[in-house]
Nucleic acid binder design. Structure first.
Lengths: 334, 334
DNA sequence: TTGTATGCGTTATCAG
DNA sequence: CTGATAACGCATACAA
């Protein structure tokens, strides 16, 4: 039986710099010089031009893997997020990615589906080389191997050792709670995130410092889950006149619960959210919430990472937020 | 002046297979054999074990760039989307990424921010090697270079030449319009996407086939923009009793418009959406909409791409959708 | 101004 | 069963 040679089905003929060199009768290194822009003043204009047209005609594209191997940099960063499904991340992603694009970096994305262990594991794996650096959103960094000089930037997370960027949760939460208190609310419930993380821990700590030990219930970022949690919370504590929610999606669940209980917002129940997602302005009444700039979070995160990659040691940053008062808060009924 | 040698700041000492080999006194190729799993029956159990422990102790991780260069495959695919900010994509992304993960592929993401030209351009650039294949969401593929064997899969887009997966827009739209007509609506408006694309074109064509030339207004996927478009539409056509919206976010804008006009949903205006995002169930009343499985869309897209990568030529797929009737539709007032 | 030679870390093909 | 050895495509020090 004659062996039929296996044909690689994906064998699109790759055009390499050698092909370009051959095409216009120069050496491969000249091609490299010209196309990487480092030929200025070293290669004659004529040859440079010839190289460029040959490259264009052949449709030459430098091989990313070879370049990465040679230079040791992949010009790729990875953003690890616990849940791409949450609208907040969309904006973070876009901010990070547009900044990365300007700097010539590609962004790969890993969604851990709220699996913290997986997040940490994949972060460790990524350091192997596919990525030059890591942006971890509310994910614990892997144990630093030896020194902590790994190019990692933390977003909305606060483990020491790596630079990070986060929202000023304390002042946002403070503004929200003070607003409620000034309105006259004394019994404030906390509709909390079931996901752990320092960003949520900070909300809770701030809340407790200002309003004492608030009754709470936790849910994932799904309206129905939040509704059920709110129903349980309101059922167990009928004296609650206001709800502070860790996130706008959670707040939308509170609306669902109020609707089911026949409690009107804001007359019978005040609700405050966090993040100011699109949904906040669509709810009826519009949601009073803490406005955060998610895009900025992503952009700054990339800048921090770029600085790390350049060998600097940037300081962590905290981004301002502000309370946006809309229609979901009012004085409690007498 | 003595030259101080430049120190590469990012010089984390990389552990290579050579280090592992040296550590346990075997050759580098043996290490490669063992760690790639191809050493079964060729390397003694003793040596294999020694190699594995040495690798673990040293924290060895194969260099992705070197592997990609050698094998010609990066085990990475790229998903190009026009707008990561739209919640619908989150689910698509997650579907694609979980399927990719199981197959050992990483997913990189490119957000074109609704810039179609950029989308097409970056798709072309990506083919250079960073990615083994492309998933294009509502993005036109670059002109096929020579043959059309490039590993590209189209999502919600319908340009010939590449396999694709899309929702059954026709039957979804038909179900929505028929539902409205059975309720007695004769004047149906169309709140359309400002973004072009075959998925939206199909909605329009189906709508026109069923209900004639419907008055329409277009907006981006932002509640306030949709509200303004709906306001204009309703202002110009006061006889409209129902609105068919290309997307739930657009529908939420219709709610905003109705609220401002003092028209009650569904008594004074029926609204139908598309996609069944979280927001559909949070609106008051809950939105009647066409339910689509975004995660499935992503998953199937990856499967198609994996098949392409394996040299097969998978057939395009169309995914079922169904109408979910909730509270936003009712007979028009007499 | 241009060409030659070398190596990045891996995989794969051979001999031994 | 194991070890040399040769690419993969590019960037760059050095030679001409």
């Amino acid at each position: 039986m004659s062996r039929v040679p296996e044909r690689n089905v994906n064998a699109r003929k790759r055009v390499t710099s050698v092909d370009v060199a051959r095409r216009c009768g120069v050496s491969q290194s000249t091609v490299s010089l010209v196309l990487s822009g480092k030929g200025a003043g070293r290669v004659s204009a004529r040859t440079a031009e010839a190289v460029r047209t040959a490259a264009a005609e052949l449709g030459y594209r430098p091989n990313a893997a070879a370049r990465a191997l040679k230079t040791g940099a992949a010009r790729t960063i990875v953003l690890v997020v616990p849940d791409v499904t949450n609208p907040f991340f969309g904006a973070v992603l876009r901010g990070a990615q547009s900044a990365a694009r300007e700097a010539g970096y590609a962004v790969a994305l890993v969604d851990t589906a709220n699996d913290r262990a997986y997040g940490t594991a994949s972060a460790a794996a990524l350091q192997a080389g596919p990525a030059d650096g890591l942006l971890l959103f509310a994910i614990d960094p892997p144990r630093p191997r030896g020194d902590r000089s790994d190019p990692i930037v933390l977003i909305e997370s606060d483990v020491g050792g790596h630079p990070g960027v986060r929202l000023d949760i304390e002042s946002g939460t403070t503004a929200a709670i003070r607003h409620l208190q000034e309105l006259g609310h004394r019994r404030i419930g906390h509709l909390a995130s079931a996901i752990e993380g320092s960003t949520f821990r900070l909300r809770r700590e701030t809340l407790e410092a200002l309003a004492g030990d608030a009754p709470s219930a936790a849910a994932d970022f799904v309206p129905e889950q939040a509704r059920d949690a709110a129903l349980a919370l309101l059922g167990a504590h009928p004296d609650l006149t206001a709800l502070f929610c860790d996130d706008d999606v959670l707040a939308s669940g509170a609306y669902l619960a109020a609707r089911r209980l026949g409690r009107r917002i804001p007359e019978d129940l005040s609700v405050v959210g966090f993040d100011d997602l699109d949904v906040a302005r669509v709810l009826d009444p519009p949601l009073t919430t803490v406005t955060a700039d998610a895009g900025e979070l992503g952009r700054v995160a990339f800048e921090l990472l770029a600085a790390r990659l350049a060998g600097r040691r940037p300081a962590s940053r905290v981004l301002d937020v502000h309370l946006t008062v809309r229609g979901s808060t009012a004085p409690p009924r007498a």
